[in-house]
Design a protein around this nucleic acid. Structure first.
Length: 424
RNA sequence: AGAGAGGUGGCAGAGUGGUCGAAUGCGACGGAUUCGAAAUCCGUUAUACCUGCAAGGGUAUCGGGGGUUCGAAUCCCCCCCUCUCUGCCA
């Protein structure tokens, strides 16, 4: 959520930023926010003054009662009744105005960083670099959805039977590969200075608001209505919300946490071509890295996170590229996002396996996540996160890129984690 | 899931209708003392919002919401959470 003070003091900058994100009703919304905020202040002032008078009268009445001066107390009470009417009217309207203000603020996306390229869609993303050699596979090379059947390691039909589409069952070497990747990613994160966290995978409504999944993306999460809990779409939600309503001591920064969780996404309406096999699932596994940073450090930290993720892909010997997302393609809450995509040799396309973002104060404002700045004032912190990494498309690329007639040769770094060096 | 007890400032813990934003202790911070430290002594020690150039002033917050009252941490109602016992259970 953007801060009203920023909208007020840097209106032009805000409008330019919203335009880059192709947000349509920016001008009207910003104007509405500013006038609602002014209305809010006026109401607050009126309310506080009436309340102050009422408090003073209550004190006087107390004194009169004690002194046994009933008659005078009664006359003061009459005035109190009037004030009560006033404060009631004020606070009712204030609540309405605040709600309206909040609703518009929730609609506004984060402002993009100055380095974010202009653009409307994924085609406009900036390719920063391509790393690694794309393998040359014979014409007979198979896509992963055929390989998983050939080696009987991932079974969609079984998942379909016990749950539904998009919930695969991993079997034998397929299951062990999952576990190996999770352990590998967690170990790498720990060595990079992250604290391992095992959070709940159901969260309450407040957490959904804290990181921005609610209210906008309500339909994307599975909702356990009996207890009003949501299955997390990413570990970002619980791990970032660990710090909701916290004032963090500056010397603890940056806070680095990492966690493995399954992730659940309804993906309502996003099914279509190119989503066969592991390309898109309702449940998948991911290791997420999350940092809470001082505002001055957050962009350096984003680069550090990106380097960490690239290191993982290099160790897995997967060819990848790094994209800087354009204004039209980046997420609602992000100020700057790098996407990492691995090359799928059999599908002949890039698959997104990670997204690393700086949210600046956007999430922190909702989370009320702050620190005491050098000047003694409370300041919002910056939050960042990145996938390090999401498993399904990594598995897809590993299977496709490393297929041979003799089996699938896994990269050396995974051998000890798996307990085998090839599948089949 | 049933019965009971309880939720107060960073922590512990008083306070059961009237200057209570809240005693006291601990912790933390500043200072005195000391060569330095411990001990001791003095002081400070929440957050949000409104107002003001500022100093300051005001309002709200004692799990959350609503109510009674001139006045609520304190009384009433609803919800949430924690603990103990019983039940169930990996």
């Amino acid at each position: 959520m953007l801060q009203v003070s920023v909208l007020k003091e840097h209106t032009d900058m805000v409008l330019a930023g919203l335009a880059k994100k192709h947000y349509k009703t920016a001008e009207a919304d910003v104007q509405a926010i500013l006038s609602l905020d002014q209305r809010r202040k006026d109401l607050q002032t009126g309310h506080d003054q009436a309340q102050a008078e009422a408090n003073e009268l209550a004190r006087q009445i107390g004194g009169l009662m004690k002194a046994g001066n009933k008659a005078e107390a009664e006359t003061l009470k009459a005035r109190t009744a009037e004030l009560k009417q006033q404060t009631k009217a004020h606070s009712e309207e204030l609540a309405e105005v605040e709600k309206e203000l909040q609703q518009i603020l929730y609609k506004l996306p984060n402002l993009p960083h100055s380095s974010v390229p202009e653009g409307r869609s994924a085609d406009d993303n900036e390719v920063l670099r391509e790393v690694g050699q794309k393998p040359e596979l014979p014409a007979t090379a198979k896509p992963h959805w055929e390989l998983i059947e050939q080696y009987d390691i991932i079974d969609f039909a079984l998942g379909n039977k016990i749950t539904g589409a998009g919930f695969p069952v991993y079997k034998g070497q397929g299951a062990r590969l999952q576990r190996a990747l999770i352990n590998f990613f967690l170990d790498e994160a720990r060595e990079a200075g992250y604290t391992e966290i095992q959070p709940p995978i159901l969260v309450n409504e407040a957490s959904g608001y804290g990181t921005g999944q609610l209210p906008d993306k309500e339909g994307q999460m599975y909702h356990a209505t009996a207890d009003d809990l949501y299955l997390i779409p990413t570990a970002e939600v619980p791990i970032t919300n660990l710090y909701r309503d916290e004032i963090v001591a500056a010397e603890r920064l940056p806070i680095r946490n990492a966690g493995y969780t399954p992730c659940f996404r309804r993906e309502a309406g996003s099914w279509g071509a190119h989503v066969r096999g592991l390309n898109r699932l309702h449940q998948f596994d991911k290791v997420e890295i999350v940092q809470i940073a001082h505002p001055d450090q957050s962009y350096a930290i984003l680069e550090e996170m990106l380097a960490h993720i690239e290191g993982l892909l290099q160790k897995l010997e997967l060819p990848y590229r790094v994209l800087r997302l354009c204004g039209g393609d980046m997420g609602f809450t992000s100020a700057l996002t790098y996407d990492l995509e691995v090359w799928s040799a059999a599908q002949q396309r890039w698959l997104e396996v990670s997204s690393a973002s700086n949210f600046e104060t956007y999430q922190a404002n909702r989370l009320k996540l702050r620190y005491r700045a050098e000047n003694g004032k409370m300041q919002l912190l910056h939050t960042l996160n990145g996938s390090a990494l999401a498993l399904p498309r990594i598995v897809a690329a590993l299977l496709e890129n490393n297929q041979t007639d003799a089996g699938i040769k896994l990269p050396a770094v995974l051998h000890s984690y798996c307990g085998f060096s090839q599948i089949g």
